[in-house]
Amino acid sequence: MARLWKNFVNGLWNENPTFRIMIGLCPVLAVTTEAINGIGMGLATTFVLVCSSALVSLLRKVIPEKVRIPAYIVVIATFVTIVDLFMNAYLPDLHQVLGLFIPLIVVNCIVLGRAEAFASKNSVVSSILDGLGMGLGFTWALTVLAAVRELLGSGSIFGWKLAADGATTIGVMSLPPGAFITLGILMALMNMIAARQKRRAS
C-alpha cells in the first residue's frame, strides 16, 4: 500500500515532470498563457497518461521488445484521438482554445517516457497510479505557470479581470519568453524549498 502511494505522489513533487525531470516542456511553454488552458491541457494529458500506462502495462508481456516504441505510439495516439474527438464534441469551447495542442499530446515525451520507463516494467495498478500522479503533477505545474503568466501578462486570472482597465500589463509574459522566465523562477523556488527540506531532515 505504502509503495502504491509512493508511486502516486512521485509525480506530484519528487519527480514532477515539469519542474524536476523537465520533460514535455513544449506544451508547457506553449499553452500556459491562461490558467484555464493549463488545467484543460493538464487534464487531457492526465487522461491519456493513465489510459496508455494501463494498456501498456497490460500488454507488457505481449509486445515484443523490437516493436515496443511503435506499439506504444499507436496506443498513445489512439487515446489522444479519442480525447480530441470527445473534447470537440462535448467541450467545444475548450477545444477551440487548445486547438492544435491536443493532437500534439501524442508527441509529449512524458507520455511515451512513462510508458517506456515505468508502465512497461510494472504492474497495472502501479502504472495507473504512476500515470495519475505524473498527470496531476503536470496539471498543477501548468496551472501555476499559466496563472502567473495570465496575471502578469493580461491582468486577469481564470478569465476574471483583476487589473484596472488601462493598467499596464507586462506583455512579454504572454509571449514565449515569458514562459521561459516564469518556468525558471518557479523551478528555482522549487529547488529552494527542496533544499530547505533536505537541510531540515539532516
Binding site: P70, V75, T81, L85, F86, N88, A89
Partner: peptide, 20 residues
C-alpha cells in the same frame, strides 16, 4: 502483435468517430 494493436486501435477510433 503490431498489426493487431493497429487494427484494434482503428476499430476503436472509427467507433468513437462515428459517435462524435
Amino acid at each position: 502483435v503490431l498489426s493487431v494493436i493497429a487494427m484494434v486501435s482503428a476499430a476503436v477510433l472509427s467507433l468513437v468517430y462515428g459517435k462524435t
